[in-house]
């Protein structure tokens, strides 16, 4: 075999492997979409027809409606709070050296490492201790902590990429620190903050394990309601909800890629 042929063959095999692996990653989502459109009560492949009845059932199911509303409330507050806290902290660690900086950074990024059930369980105990029970407040606090590392990271990267001369130029032209922050720094950080907020919102909306501990029936979020449903019923109503979530996040990712450039955000463009 000529080396050139071998190279072609090797590259063909490589891409075939990549395609297979991607199929493995993608097929579950496709199966969900397929199931959600099936008219049958039982799970079956291939589906015997096409129907939207599970979607109708899913959106009209009161538990899901309530849980979705809860989720939106929690997500809105949690990701916005996390954005404020996280941006401020990212600014601090980019600009200042102060005692305890490393420790504070370690604590605030540890929710990435601490198992979600440990965090959830901890906040459950904390809620009981503070006498706030499994209220919205507790759920929001837990979510703020869980998404905070992502916001800090995103804003921090934007700060790092900021040309420090711009702020000096503004100060040199007579802008007060507050004006520098509001007229120069913040506008330039907006893409990073928007990206951080978006990631935080998606993660909060879909967070399950910790939420299972800190929510009560009154405050349960959508993933918790779905979990309860899966344990009790086997019909494809969940498939419809799941399909909506899959399509929603895929669309969001497309948008994020278009306007923010995923490869740039993740810094995986070849040098």
């Amino acid at each position: 075999m000529s080396p050139r042929l071998a190279a072609r063959l090797g590259s063909g095999l490589f891409w075939a492997a990549v395609a297979l692996i991607l199929a493995y990653m993608t097929i579950p989502a496709l199966v969900v979409l397929m199931t959600s459109l099936s008219p049958s009560e039982l799970l079956e492949f291939p589906p015997s027809g096409l129907s939207l009845k599970w979607y109708a059932r899913a959106v009209s199911y009161p538990d899901f409606q309530a849980a979705f509303a809860n989720g939106l409330i929690v997500t809105a507050f949690a990701s916005t709070c996390a954005l404020a806290v996280g941006s401020a902290f990212a600014y601090l660690i980019d600009r200042y050296v102060f005692p305890g900086r490393a420790a504070l950074e370690a604590v605030l990024s540890s929710p990435l490492i601490v198992p979600h059930f440990t965090t959830g369980f901890g906040f459950l105990l904390l809620g009981a201790g503070l006498g706030i029970g499994r209220s919205y407040l507790l759920v929001i606090l837990a979510h703020v902590m869980l998404v905070l590392p992502f916001v800090i990271r995103s804003v921090y990267v934007s700060l790092r990429n900021l040309d420090p001369h711009l702020e000096r130029a503004a100060a040199n032209l007579g802008a007060s620190p507050w004006r520098v922050l509001s007229r120069v720094t913040l506008p330039l950080l907006l893409p990073g903050m928007a990206g951080g907020w978006l990631v935080a919102a998606i993660l909060s909306l879909t967070e399950f394990t910790a939420s299972l501990y800190v929510t009560a029936e009154r405050t349960q979020t959508l993933p918790v309601a779905m979990y309860t449903y899966i344990r009790e019923y086997t019909d494809p109503t969940i498939a419809a909800i799941a399909a909506l979530l899959i399509l929603g996040t895929t669309a969001l990712i497309f948008v994020a890629n278009r306007y923010l450039g995923l490869r740039r955000i993740l810094s995986i463009d070849a040098h």
Binding site: V18, L22, M25, T26, P28, A29, V31, V32, I202, L203, L205, T206, E207, F208, T209, P223, M226, Y227, I230, I238, A239, A242, L245, I246, T249, T250, L252, I253, F254, N257, L262, R263, L266, I268
Partner: peptide, 20 residues
């Protein structure tokens, strides 16, 4: 590739588990 590769990250564990 990047869209296919990272989308599962954002659909949440319940959706992914249910899919499986």
């Amino acid at each position: 590739l990047i869209i296919l590769a990272i989308t599962p990250l954002f659909t949440g564990e319940i959706v992914r588990t249910y899919a499986w």
